[in-house]
């Protein structure tokens, strides 16, 4: 665990110095948070049901965030090692294969959750100030489950997809674009919502959670295999 901490600390120090990462990891939360805030702003003076509908839409932003933030971080943290030729020296250290995998995954998942939840908190505060209170029924169980269960699952999904893609290419832009596809699952609620199937509800959240658990399980299996030394040295491109 100590070595994983060491790895993560170095990664963050390094990632902080990359412009694309700063844009990806800070600009996006600000944008999404801003959009969500703007939506609530429009709800001023509307009846509570209409306000609740706006909140439902705003929630979608908080499902896109946890996928998109780790994509940037994971892509640069892995493609960066390749580009700089640091993989072999890293593999020569006593880090275990599992520690390398876990370190690289946490590097991206942790900030993503912290930022998502941080922006969410700011959003709630802003909504409270703008509307003079959060409409009843908004912070329902499905809502909270979305934020606190779906978000981490989505973040893990985004990271695993990025890790998979990054091991296959050394072009950060290509990796970034491919990994962007990871956002698809977080659009499911949005799609369901916009074709009027339903608003945020428990069934939908559980369904999506279930799909993500299965997808993550399958990805984890693949990615852990990819993150074995031998594989990294001989098969990664």
């Amino acid at each position: 665990m100590r070595r994983v901490r060491v790895l993560i600390a170095k990664e963050w120090e390094e990632l902080r110095k990359i412009k694309m990462v700063i844009y990806g990891a800070l600009f996006l939360p600000l944008l999404m948070g801003g959009l969500a805030g703007f939506m609530v702003w429009q709800g001023q003076g509307l009846p509570p049901e209409a306000q609740a509908a706006l909140f439902n839409t705003a929630l979608m932003y908080f499902l896109i965030l946890p996928v998109m933030i780790p994509v940037t971080l994971a892509v640069y943290s892995i493609v960066g090692e390749k580009e700089q030729g640091t993989l072999e020296p890293l593999l020569a250290t006593p880090l275990t294969d599992w520690e390398i995998f876990a370190g690289k995954a946490l590097v991206a998942v942790l900030p993503s959750l912290v930022l998502t939840w941080g922006v969410f908190l700011l959003f709630l505060i802003a909504a409270h100030v703008i509307l003079g209170g959060i409409p009843a029924g908004v912070l329902s169980v499905p809502w909270l489950l979305s934020i606190f269960v779906l978000s981490p699952l989505l973040a893990v999904f985004g990271v695993l997809v990025s890790m998979l893609v990054s091991s296959r290419t050394s072009d950060p832009r290509a990796a970034y674009q491919f990994s962007g596809l990871a956002v698809v699952p977080s659009l499911i609620p949005l799609i369901a919502y916009s074709i009027q199937m339903t608003a945020v509800n428990l069934l939908l959240v559980i369904l999506e959670g279930g799909i993500l658990v299965v997808l993550n399980g399958a990805l984890l299996y693949l990615v852990v295999k990819l993150f074995r030394r031998e594989e990294i040295l001989t098969r990664w491109k």
Partner: peptide, 29 residues
């Protein structure tokens, strides 16, 4: 791995970080 030191064929470093930080990182690992 702990007993052995290796100078790899194309030894890369984290180029944005300082010399000292790079060395400290590996020493730490």
């Amino acid at each position: 791995r702990s007993t052995v030191g290796i100078l790899t064929e194309s030894p890369g470093f984290y180029k944005r970080l300082s010399l000292e930080r790079n060395l400290r990182y590996f020493a730490d690992l």
